[in-house]
Design a protein around this nucleic acid. Structure first.
Lengths: 135, 135
DNA sequence: CTGAATCCTGGGCGATACTG
DNA sequence: CAGTATCGCCCAGGATTCAG
């Protein structure tokens, strides 16, 4: 058939757009930050090096799978370093790299914005929800 | 039984920690930013007001459902304003609020960081992957 | 202690069709 | 034009178990 359905056209556009998005550094970073555990790990490590078990305790509720997955991804990206001390039992330390530290600065900026404007957001929500009640 | 399994303990910790996290402004903001479409919508609107159909065209591949969902969430948070002009056919304009504009600034900071350091990240990845090949 | 491998479930997201 | 309603798929992520 010569024509595409609306869905097919959107699908095509989506695939192309996805490629564009994946190639965009900003979105790559946003994807990282989007991960729930990443910011927690970075925040935890910004206070200094920590062991695997320290992290799993400090970041309560994380499953070993997700912790490992997160740590591996961040190590791959050069955000943190992984140091194995072959003692018995094994000891592994994680530490932010210089790159990771600069990323932590970004998180600080986000944190600052959040603390500065969270009240406005809450007020906006209450206003919005109040209007919804009326209707 | 008197004791809890590791899973149960972690589950309990997770629930408590979730409550803590939800109350944290930084994480609330991170959650917003984490949404794939949010940054795209904000970026699109940072160039000026747009209509619904303009957005769905500019942000290729977004389904009407997700676009609406995203717009509603951002409106609720006071990030953007929704203006209905009851003509025939209906016309709806979306525009960043002042709060939304300040959020856009944050995105700019993220963008700057990403563009500055993306090379280092890529190099780190290649190094990491190269080592993986050896083993 | 630090993970790797496996199974499994929930709900987020996309596609589609329909309304004012 | 600007959405709403509904269905179904898929896979991210949690639980669990085992290994070095």
């Amino acid at each position: 058939m010569a024509t595409m359905t609306a869905g097919q056209r959107r699908e095509k556009a989506r695939v192309e757009y996805d490629a564009f998005i994946r190639a965009c550094p900003t979105n790559q970073l946003l994807d990282r930050l989007s991960d729930k555990w990443v910011s927690l790990v970075v925040a935890a490590l910004s206070g200094g090096p920590m062991r695997y078990s320290d992290l799993s305790r400090k970041i309560a509720g994380v499953s070993p799978k997700m912790l490992t997955q997160t740590l591996r991804a961040l190590e791959r990206d050069g955000i943190l370093s992984r140091t194995v001390t072959p003692s018995v039992p094994v000891r592994v330390d994680y530490e932010l790299t210089e790159l990771g530290a600069s990323l932590a600065c970004l998180l600080t900026a986000v944190k600052t914005w959040a603390e500065t404007h969270i009240e406005e957001v809450h007020e906006a929500r209450e206003r919005y929800d109040a209007e919804a009640d009326v209707s």
